[in-house]
């Protein structure tokens, strides 16, 4: 009797599991695979209220994590949120569905600066979600001279008072910018030129941290940082002494976009979601929760003065910004170079 009941329970479980799978095929579901801390719950609830579509959310912490999960389970996710160089790699590998732009009329709200970029030149595959940059944060209570370029960060005056992102590609791109070399066409020759610059820079670094570089700045362990603009915006909002500046040599602009992976089961719903977040009033809610640069021109008109005045979200002037392109296998050489130099500067 006991075993029979157990068997019954197991059978029931299987039925539930199968019907659960079947449900995702029905019209009312959207499987969203997005960054953690990037899509406000308010926006998801609003979408469900308006369309009746249930949203299943799964999060990731890096493009690389997203890629590996996406490629292992085709047909599981309807909408993903990769950064520009990852989009380019996915397009090259033919892993994205083309968008039906007639279903996304609100795309007209976007600022043209953020569309038709090299990673998706005809806007066929992706719609920008939020943008940001990588720039310099200075604790002006400790550092009195202005620091607005990579060269000034690593002039030697801030030796062992610096936090930088723990990201080999970012670090190498700064050295390349300071040498006026292209950051997206990386060759063994350009790496060889970057090497002596980095050999001089990296021994001055106190902390490498990509996840929460603001911590070292807040605790007073370092005075200068090269960090994500979102982190800088949070620091500035906490205390105005943390000033953000984009490096004079040029900086990396990252753009995270929404895209539909190949074979997504609910492509129509995914397009509905894209159209929904492009509504200015909805887009503002995203900006309120996560102070990155909003690419939606109509939404920006609705932001408060204080939001627009945060230099980390909306850097003043006309800075030199460039997005990353997919660089393929040379990333292994970049990783080796940085590991090598970190190792040499240690001990």
């Amino acid at each position: 009797m006991r075993t029979f009941r157990l068997f019954l329970a197991l059978a029931l479980l299987c039925v539930v599991a199968v019907s659960g799978r079947a449900e995702t095929k029905k019209k009312g579901v959207l499987n969203l695979f997005c960054w953690s801390e990037y899509v406000p719950q308010e926006v998801i609830d609003g979408f469900t209220r308006q369309t009746g579509i249930k949203v299943n959310v799964e999060n990731y912490a890096s493009n690389e994590e997203m890629l590996s999960k996406l490629l292992e389970s085709e047909g599981k996710y309807d909408l993903i949120q990769p950064s520009e160089y990852t989009i380019e790699a996915l397009i090259k590998a033919n892993k994205l569905e083309q968008l039906h732009l007639e279903n996304i009329p609100n795309i007209k709200n976007l600022d043209p600066t953020y569309t038709s970029l090299p990673h998706d030149p005809e806007n066929k595959y992706s719609v920008p979600w939020m943008a940001g940059s990588v720039g310099i944060v200075v604790n002006t209570a400790k550092v009195k001279t202005p620091v607005t370029s990579y060269k000034e960060v690593f002039s030697g005056a801030h030796k062992k008072r610096i936090v930088i992102l723990n990201d080999a590609r970012e670090i190498v791109s700064w050295a390349l910018s300071s040498l006026d070399l292209p950051i997206n066409e990386i060759t063994p020759a350009s790496l060889a030129k970057a090497k002596p610059v980095l050999a001089q820079w990296l021994p001055q670094v106190r902390v490498y941290d990509s996840d929460s570089p603001k911590t070292a700045l807040l605790n007073g362990n370092v005075d200068v940082g090269i960090v994500w603009s979102g982190e800088a915006a949070i620091l500035y909002a906490k205390n105005k002494k943390f000033q953000y500046a984009l490096p004079a040599e040029g900086a990396h602009r990252f753009i995270d976009s929404l895209a539909i992976p190949k074979g997504a089961p609910n492509q129509e719903n995914a397009e509905k979601f894209i159209n929904f977040i492009l509504i200015p009033e909805v887009s503002v809610k995203i900006s309120n929760a996560f102070p990155y640069t909003n690419p939606n021109a109509e939404a920006r008109k609705l932001l408060t003065k204080a939001q627009l005045a945060n230099p980390a979200s909306y850097p003043p002037g006309d800075p030199k910004l460039e997005t990353f392109r997919d660089i393929g296998k040379i990333s292994a050489d970049i990783d080796k170079l940085v590991t090598d130099l970190k190792n040499a500067s240690g001990d």
Partner: peptide, 24 residues
């Protein structure tokens, strides 16, 4: 340690994440 002097655990973790080189 602030990731300044790399240890083997960090280097391996890096291969599986940002370097995207699982075989290595």
């Amino acid at each position: 340690g602030g990731g300044v002097d790399p240890t083997i655990g960090e280097v391996i973790q890096n291969q599986f994440f940002s370097a995207r080189d699982r075989p290595f």
